[in-house]
Nucleic acid binder design. Sequence first.
DNA 1: TTGAAAGCGCTAACAG
DNA 2: CTGTTAGCGCTTTCAA
Lengths: 334, 334
Amino acid sequence: MGLTIKDVAKEAGVSYATVSRALNDHPDVNEDTRKRILKIASEIGYQPNVIARGLVSQETKTIGLLIPDITNPFFPEVARGVEEAAIEAGYNIFLCNTNWSKEREEHYIDALLQKQVDGLIITPSSENLDHLERLLNSKVKTVFVSSFIKHPDFTSIIVDNVTGAQRAVQHLIERGHKKIGFVGAGEDRFANQERLKGYKQALEANNIEIRPKYIKNQEGSYKRKSGYYLMKELLSLDQYPTAVFSYNDLLALGAIQAIREEGLSVPEDVAVIGFDDISFASLPEIQLTTVAQPKYDMGQLALENLLEQIKDKKEKSISRRILLDPKLIIRKTS
Amino acid sequence: MGLTIKDVAKEAGVSYATVSRALNDHPDVNEDTRKRILKIASEIGYQPNVIARGLVSQETKTIGLLIPDITNPFFPEVARGVEEAAIEAGYNIFLCNTNWSKEREEHYIDALLQKQVDGLIITPSSENLDHLERLLNSKVKTVFVSSFIKHPDFTSIIVDNVTGAQRAVQHLIERGHKKIGFVGAGEDRFANQERLKGYKQALEANNIEIRPKYIKNQEGSYKRKSGYYLMKELLSLDQYPTAVFSYNDLLALGAIQAIREEGLSVPEDVAVIGFDDISFASLPEIQLTTVAQPKYDMGQLALENLLEQIKDKKEKSISRRILLDPKLIIRKTS
DNA sequence: TTGAAAGCGCTAACAG
DNA sequence: CTGTTAGCGCTTTCAA
């Protein structure tokens, strides 16, 4: 295809090994020849073939980012964080939407391993990691984002879901609410369990009875629609809740729609709190009260941590659990 | 690192060329040995090293996607379109946010060329392509999305911006508006020019005077804030417009905010139309009238077209301009 | 300080 | 049908 190191060598009248040294700032190469080589290389427009280099050095300066769906406004910000940190370190990232599907996840992991990525950042679609055995067996460094894995070899970057939920519910209680619902996502999902735990703890701490009827979960759906339907169910109860804490902002938006459709108003009749603080939660028309996750930082930390592991050539890295602090942002829906 | 073709060969008691053949479904290899090799390969957990393969075959099954900012809700959908088409064809994509910066764009192009991507899909940050000479000189197949390039060697996937704008403005006129403003983005941006052209054509077709005062552009900003400020300027005019057509939905949202802050209401006092139909334009709280772009399809088409070019090993491909039809979606802001 | 040569993992002639 | 060998573009010993 393009020009190779040999073309530069021929032009410069040196062996191609010398060119390689010059290009890689190798110490023992005459300063003059280095300069000459560099000059020639740029003149003829030589660009190194990183693929070939990677074959030798056994690293590709490439990492894979597996997320469920970049269309969900939570993920673009995480991706930005990952990318900014990556560009600084000279890495490129493969974007892989797993579509909340195990098959896709598996497919991508195989593809990325075959492409010799130096590491992986993943938000798995499920807590169950059986389908990822190939990854777990390989020695490819991996960090989990927004999901905690019991596996001893991997580190996770997560927000303190329990605390976040507690703060949200505590706030609702301070506003005088006693009948507080939970609009959740998949029960098997770690974050959902944690947020539910925080919800319960806040109620208990205030001696408010936990009513199972007020807790709704919709398997594997994180979209507005399910918030809508779950809220409809809640509203059909004799004594419907006067406030709900929901798993994420999208669900919260769906809940709000359901509430308004019933002729009720937010927050007067029913208060709503979300989780994530996606960009449009702050729109004047929305003004959603929510628990903010430091999305960008999570991405950045994930990459930095991954890089650390990659540099530490050790076989196994120490599992870490990096807990970030969530922040309650009070707006107009509570 | 991992297992190689040689490990499989040793285990199977054949030469490693035979293994290569078996793995690549080469016709002349005994059916029994193939089966045996495949079995052994999977048993010992062999995964091919695609990097090495690429060195030989001169293709990496990898393409680069350069977009300004995945955080802007227009792009995730395009990216999904690209990715779905890519996964089907066995390609992986490098996500690169250029941050609307020429330097980043240049940086990424170099990095991707060095990583030997088979092709590039790009939404350039500017119509001026001087900084991309390295790309234009290389023979790497490229398709432009959402931006039209005069260069004869490249194909572009774009929505018919002129028609889209005409439809929007025509709709406003039919609603009885005569004083219609334009809230634009960078004047040097192709899409902005086209949408402005459509705006003017619609006014002319209806014998409505084009007033330069009603046309506002904010260099290089596509965010809510600039829509807000531009609208404020428009509202400070003696005879402010009773309707505005804005470059995109984000700008439109900012405009709406400005209008409401002045104590005016939408659409009664001032109607607003956006462009793109980003996901939250349809939220019940927003209900933005807008010109929808087939974002997902654009991404998909871009990749399919790129693949075609890659397959046609020809040096230069015929430049094509694929024009998609925009759709006016009338909601509550007009 | 430089060159020659081996080899990273794989594919593709070329023989046999 | 299978093995041998060269070579993709590069880095890295080992000698000189």
